[in-house]
Structure formats: structure tokens, C-alpha cells
Amino acid sequence: MKVVTGVVGNDIHVVANRLIDLSLQARGYEVFNLGVNTYLEEFFDAVIETGADILLISSLNGEAEGWGREVPRLKAKYKKLDDIIMMIGGNLVVGTGNAEDIIPRYKGYGFDIVCHQVDLNTGLDSLEEMLKERNLK
């Protein structure tokens, strides 16, 4: 299964990105890592070029909200993105925030799995569950 991943916007926090790449590979995914500093259009374009099934976006520095809001408008421009599973994690707001507010908001933006300050392995386990639910694995 193919996954496109990277860190959105002007964010340069790279450590999580490397760990995500390794963890996904260890779990048997084929990973396309766009690295830090990646814009939304590049994420979607990479999904198209690779034929990926999953898009996993990280955000650490507090920019996520602005980009999240852009997702519905941009995604609507694409004709071949309807089936992808979208996942976002890291620090999804400035400060600590409250997961009960954050999760529904990001689901509203179109994300299927939202992991605000959630440990990576926990997050990837919920991805596996979703794949099973959807009979994709």
C-alpha cells in the first residue's frame, strides 16, 4: 500500500518526519516522503503521480489550522482524489488545545484520522484499523 507523507507548509521540524518514514516502512507500506516544507498542492499532486492510497500529513509548529482550512477548497479541484484516506497528526493547534474540539474540526476539513499530540504508533494502529474496516487490508 502506498503512502505519501511530509510536513506541511513552512514547517521545518524534521525528526518526526524521519521517524514516520521508518515506521511506515517497517509496517510494510511503500512510502513517498516529500520531507519538510511541503505545500498542500504538492501533497495532492504526489498522490496523483504515485497512485497512493493514503496521505499522511504532519504539522509540528502550529501552522496546521491554516492549511487544514484550505483542504476542502483545494481537494475539490481534483477529480481523482475521492478514495484516498487522509490523516493528519503532530501539534494541530498553537499550544496544547483540546482534542474534543480539534478532532471534529479537522474531520470537517476532510481528514479521516486526526491525531493531535498522539504518539506515532498509536496513530498508525488506528490507520490499520481503518484499513481493516474498509476491507482494504
Binding site: E41, D45, E49
Partner: peptide
Amino acid sequence: GGLSTLIIGVTHSFS
């Protein structure tokens, strides 16, 4: 004047 080309690709960021 050089050669002219038209490019058809599937995304702006890559192809």
C-alpha cells in the same frame, strides 16, 4: 525560432 511543444501532464508540481 526554435521548436514548439505542447505538454500534457497529470499534475503541476511534478509531471
